[in-house]
Amino acid sequence: MSVLVADGDRPREGGADRKVVDVAVGVLLRSDGDFLLTSRPPGKVYEGYWEFPGGKLEAGETVEQALRRELHEEIGITISKAQAWKVELVDYPHALVRLNFCKVFDWTGELHMREGQLFAWQRLPVQVKPVLPGTLPVLLWFAEERKFSGLTHTRV
């Protein structure tokens, strides 16, 4: 697995023996192809950057259990099923994070940004900026999927 290094010019916290933090990430997809991005809440690292919603796994949780809990806590929805998709390791200055991306096609409830964040339904090329470094691979994967489905000239 490759490692995406974010802000490589900044020092890393915790030194060489940092523990990997597992994070469940929900890629919510509507039937029209739009996907949901949320902004990082006030007071958090990378405040205001746009990302896919999700959060850290708690002890004993599976990725799907964590995603179900996090999406309910953060944005007020209940997912029916999460489809495991891809995994990306991101080396941020503050943490070494394994992002477990899951596609989510079906949920109930209305979006309620419970942490003061913003949300935007997007498609390529995304209109919101700045985008969190760990989000960029997903946008590239979307571009690849569209390229192979016959839609070319897609910008991230």
Score class of each variant (00 low, 15 high):
Leu28Gln: 04
Pro41Asn: 10
Asp32Leu: 08
Gly14His: 04
Arg30Phe: 08
Ala16Arg: 15
Ser31Met: 06
Gly33Lys: 09
Gly55Glu: 04
Ala59Trp: 13
Glu13Ser: 11
Gly48Ile: 08
Glu64Asn: 06
Glu51His: 09
Asp17Asn: 14
Leu67Arg: 06
Gly54Leu: 04
Arg30Val: 05
Glu47Gly: 11
Val25Pro: 00
Leu28Gly: 04
Arg18Asp: 06
Pro42Ile: 13
Val23Lys: 15
Arg10Ala: 12
Ala59Gln: 14
Gly15Asn: 05
Leu67His: 04
Tyr49Asp: 14
Gly33Asn: 06
Glu51Lys: 14
Lys19His: 10
Val63Ala: 07
Glu58Gly: 12
Ser31Thr: 12
Pro11Gly: 10
Glu13Tyr: 08
Arg12Gln: 13
Gln65Met: 14
Pro11Ser: 12
Val27Glu: 04
Arg30Gly: 00
Asp34Ile: 00
Arg68Asp: 10
Asp32Ile: 05
Arg18His: 09
Tyr46Leu: 14
Pro41Cys: 10
Tyr49Lys: 07
Glu13Phe: 07
Asp9Thr: 06
Glu64Arg: 02
Gly14Cys: 05
Lys44Ser: 15
Gly60Asn: 12
Ser39Tyr: 04
Phe52Gln: 01
Trp50Val: 00
Gln65Cys: 05
Gly60Leu: 03
Ala66Val: 06
Gly48Glu: 10
Phe52Leu: 01
Phe52Glu: 01
Gly8Phe: 00
Val23Trp: 00
Asp22Ser: 12
Asp32Gly: 01
Asp9Cys: 00
Phe35Gly: 00
Leu67Ile: 08
Ala24Pro: 13
Glu58Asp: 12
Ala59Gly: 11
Gly8Leu: 01
Asp32Met: 02
Glu51Val: 14
Gly15Gln: 08
Trp50Ser: 02
Asp17Thr: 12
Leu28Ile: 03
Val27Cys: 08
Val25Phe: 02
Ser39Asp: 07
Arg12Pro: 04
Val63Lys: 03
Leu57Glu: 05
Gln65Tyr: 05
Ala66Gln: 01
Ala59Asn: 12
Gly26Met: 02
Val23Glu: 10
Leu37Glu: 02
Glu47Met: 08
Arg68Gly: 03
Arg12Gly: 00
Tyr46Gln: 09
Val23Pro: 00
Lys56Thr: 15
Leu36Asp: 04
Gly14Asp: 03
Phe52Ile: 04
Ala24Gly: 12
Ala16Val: 15
Asp9Phe: 11
Gly26Val: 06
Pro42Ala: 15
Val63Ile: 15
Phe52Met: 06
Leu57Arg: 06
Arg30Gln: 14
Gly8Thr: 04
Leu67Phe: 05
Arg10Glu: 15
Glu64Ile: 07
Arg18Gly: 08
Ala24Thr: 09
Glu58Ser: 13
Glu51Trp: 00
Leu37Pro: 02
Glu51Cys: 05
Val23Cys: 14
Val25Gln: 06
Leu36Met: 02
Trp50Arg: 03
Arg10Asn: 02
Ala59Asp: 15
Arg30Cys: 01
Val20Pro: 11
Arg40Lys: 13
Ala59Cys: 06
Val20Cys: 13
Pro11Leu: 07
Tyr49Glu: 13
Gly43Met: 08
Leu29Val: 10
Ser39Leu: 05
Lys56Trp: 12
Arg18Lys: 10
Gly15Trp: 05
Leu37Asn: 09
Trp50Thr: 03
Glu64Pro: 01
Val45Glu: 13
Arg69Met: 03
Arg12Trp: 13
Gln65Asn: 07
Val63His: 07
Asp22Trp: 04
